[in-house]
């Protein structure tokens, strides 16, 4: 087991390292950031001077080596825009992103699991049609569109909820709904198919035949056994929710990591982009690491492999 844990942990490091490397070179394809940070009438010498000060005039591989050397020590440099510690800025925004991701996840589970169970149990009835229909719509609707429609309806027309901004629980309702929509669709679909699988098993038929009450049959016998793959999916989705809330955060002016990354990318504030990618990759890899360990704990076959 220890071997397995160490091996998986090394994978976490490799994943984060690769993510940082790829992003480092990708953002450089767009050029260096100096022109965006100086006034347009800055003379060429000052641009050169600034480039030198920030080290952007050095060969790319030297910059990369330097960046990695510092990054390993937790130093991602200072934001070009505000001249504050880049990692600190990202960590400041993390709680807001977590709030949104976790509430969305919980909301999604509360809607998706009953819906999935119902669709499966009442297969080919109107309930099933509604459930399947919702999943198709949920996965097809882009989050920026859904976000804007919700804002238009609940903020602009009905004036019930704030259109954006961070702060009170009320501010969370619309972005949470928007972010949860996609997960609801995925979880429902998955729960439904997992349940369908299990419901056809012999032991369910046996249980049914021996007169186990329906509720108990679903909850105890069927749902519990279909939950294992769903847990994996939840772990994966949490990663997606944490990293993929960029658009939702921008539409709802939510002060989280996604929006910070998006704006920093537009401003070419590279230290923040890299610190942000580091944090998201790390969280994603750790969540998967934990899921793997849990899975291995539950299922010894995996450990042996």
């Amino acid at each position: 087991m220890l071997d397995f844990v160490i091996k998986r942990f090394l994978q976490v490091i490799v994943v984060v390292f690769l993510a940082l490397t790829v992003v480092f070179f990708l953002i450089r394809l767009a050029g260096d950031p100096t022109t965006l940070f100086l006034p347009p009438d800055a003379p060429r010498e000052q641009i050169e001077e600034y480039r030198e000060l920030l080290g952007y005039n050095r060969p790319l591989y030297v910059q990369y080596g330097d960046f990695m050397y510092n990054a390993i020590q937790g130093d991602f440099g200072e934001s070009l825009r505000s001249q504050e510690d880049a990692l600190g800025i990202v960590l400041d925004r993390l709680p807001a992103t977590f709030q949104l991701a976790i509430t969305s996840l919980i909301l999604a589970l509360f809607i998706a699991i009953p819906l999935g169970v119902l669709s499966a149990y009442k297969r080919n009835t109107v309930f099933d049609r509604i459930g399947v229909g919702l999943t198709v719509v949920g996965q097809a609707v882009p989050s920026f569109w859904l976000g804007l429609i919700l804002i238009f309806l609940f903020a602009a027309q009905l004036q019930l909820l704030p259109s954006g901004g961070g702060g009170t629980p009320v501010h969370m309702i619309l972005p949470t709904l928007t972010l949860a929509a996609y997960s609801v669709a995925r979880f429902t679909r998955f729960t439904r198919s997992a349940m369908l699988d299990v419901l056809q098993k012999d032991y369910i038929r046996t249980a049914k035949a021996s007169g186990v009450p329906t509720m108990r049959l679903i909850m105890r016998y069927a749902l519990r056994n279909s939950l294992i793959p769903i847990i994996t999916l939840v772990a994966l989705d949490l990663g997606v929710l944490l990293g993929g809330a960029v658009i939702t955060e921008a539409v709802f002016s939510w002060p989280g990591v996604g929006r910070l990354l998006w704006q920093s990318l537009m401003n070419r504030d590279f230290p923040i982009v890299l610190a942000g990618v580091f944090i998201i990759a790390l969280i994603y890899a750790i969540i998967n690491f934990v899921a793997d360990i849990l899975y291995a704990y539950v299922n010894p076959q995996i450990r042996v492999k």
Partner: peptide
């Protein structure tokens, strides 16, 4: 000063009186 990067969010917030 409330920061709203998206025009459509500013527009909605204005129409709703925020």
């Amino acid at each position: 000063f409330r920061y709203m990067p998206e025009f459509s969010s500013r527009m909605a917030a204005f129409l709703s009186g925020e």
